[in-house]
């Protein structure tokens, strides 16, 4: 950008537009595929947790979702009743 452009002001940089568009489309396309590792992760987490607490396979859920700029990995473990 030249010095004169600076004073004349300029439109939004096209590289920014490119990045924003890519962010959206890549997130969308990745979600469509879904992360491949989730089932394996769930399996391994279950093994670790089961080592310490007796827990049913059905009572553990691993999920991944996107919230704004973040990806949130959620782990839900339902412990057996303590009585």
């Amino acid at each position: 950008m030249s010095f004169l452009d600076y004073f004349l002001g300029s439109r939004k940089k096209s590289a920014h537009v490119a990045k924003d568009r890519l962010k959206l489309i890549l997130a969308h396309e990745r979600d469509a595929d879904g992360p491949d590792f989730l089932p394996a992760l769930q399996e391994e987490l279950l093994a670790v947790i089961a080592k310490y607490i007796p827990v049913d396979k059905e009572n553990i859920k691993v999920s991944m979702e996107r919230r704004g700029d973040f990806e949130v990995l959620e782990l839900n473990v339902l412990f057996p009743d303590q009585h």
Binding site: K13, A15, K23
Partner: peptide
């Protein structure tokens, strides 16, 4: 072109 804002920077591509 990256400096001029016309091309994705290496940081952009790495991040994406």
């Amino acid at each position: 072109r990256v400096e001029d804002g016309e091309m994705l920077s290496l940081g952009d591509v790495k991040e994406l």
